[in-house]
């Protein structure tokens, strides 16, 4: 049986003005995996994340951290925030200090660690995120991608078991996107940290996500591996999303041109294998 790092059961959250941002969400993130949450703007992703980290308290439902229900007293919330780190979409909302080193140290200091341990962790997080060379620069002199890395380092120092990233690739150039996603797979594989990412960049989903949820209007509309999700393009389209470009191409080849392609093919590597397989088949039938 799979082990779940964090789980939400029938989560309900309503804002003061009456908007029901989360309407009975059931969600679980497997330990040591990257779980993707797909959803258009205003689907409730950010509200869900703030609930998972204890900044917001759900009005109904439960959150389980490694199988244990979270208690909403001081210790319980502190534990939740220690174990679950959030990297917000806009790094300017997260980086409060003009000094890179001190900003990264903030979370570790809040854990009550001695200064030497904080320094060790800051150095380690800067090395892991490739931000060591930025220590001599003020925050406002960094590029968007660099700020994003510093924000990730600021969460890594807390050595959480789960890292949540809200739209980690939004606003980055292609190189920046692949750098950040490589960093995330590295964090997952080398440090065993479970990762939850929200995104509407469909093309990166089959490349990096182990499991995906489709969130829309505060409800989970679908869940499954990326391949399972892409086997039902109509659900994606109903919820203002689309197939990855490759999967779309394969869909057209199948539906319009009558080619015998598999439904779930959604990455370049999978498509290549699929095309080669069909060419072999052709050869066999021709020969």
């Amino acid at each position: 049986m799979a082990e779940y790092a964090i789980e939400a059961r029938d989560l309900v959250y309503t804002y003061e003005d009456g908007t029901r941002a989360l309407d009975g969400i059931c969600f679980r993130a497997e330990a040591g995996k990257i779980t993707g949450i797909l959803g258009s703007n205003g689907a409730g992703k950010s509200t869900l994340f703030l609930n998972l980290n204890g900044v917001r308290t759900p009005h109904a439902g439960q959150i389980l951290l490694a199988g244990e229900p979270v208690t909403y007293n001081k210790q319980g919330i502190q534990r939740l925030r220690r174990e679950v780190g959030i990297v917000f979409q806009d790094p300017d909302n997260q980086l409060f200090s003009a000094d890179v080193y001190r900003d990264i140290s903030f979370g570790a200091v809040n854990l009550g660690l001695p200064a030497e341990e904080v320094r060790r962790r800051v150095e380690w997080a800067m090395e892991k995120t490739g931000t060591a060379s930025l220590r001599e620069k003020p925050t406002h002199a960094l590029s968007y991608g660099q700020k994003k890395r510093v924000a990730i380092a600021g969460v890594l120092v807390m050595e959480p078991r789960i890292i949540i990233l809200d739209e980690p690739t939004a606003g980055l150039d292609p190189q920046g996107v692949s750098d950040i996603m490589h960093l995330l797979t590295h964090i997952r594989d080398q440090m065993g940290i479970s990762i939850i990412v929200s995104t509407h960049d469909m093309d990166i989903v089959p490349l990096y996500c182990d499991y995906t949820y489709l969130l829309c209007g505060g409800e989970m509309k679908a869940a499954g591996t990326p391949e399972e999700l892409f086997s039902h393009p109509e659900i994606l389209r109903e919820n203002h999303l689309r197939l990855p470009r490759i999967a779309h191409l394969m869909e057209i080849l199948r539906d319009k041109d009558g080619l015998d392609t598999e439904v779930w093919v959604s990455t370049i590597a999978q498509a290549r294998r699929e095309i080669k397989r069909m060419m072999e088949q052709n050869k066999d039938t021709a020969g």
């Binding site: 703030l50 959030i86 917000f88 909302n93 409060f96 140290s105 809040n110 200064a115 807390m158």
Partner: peptide, 25 residues
Amino acid sequence: NKADAIYSALESRGYTGALNTVAGN
């Protein structure tokens, strides 16, 4: 709006009322 967002972000990193940090050597 930014103040709100920053407050949330600080809270998620364990902010309890003081912006304590450790500086480099």
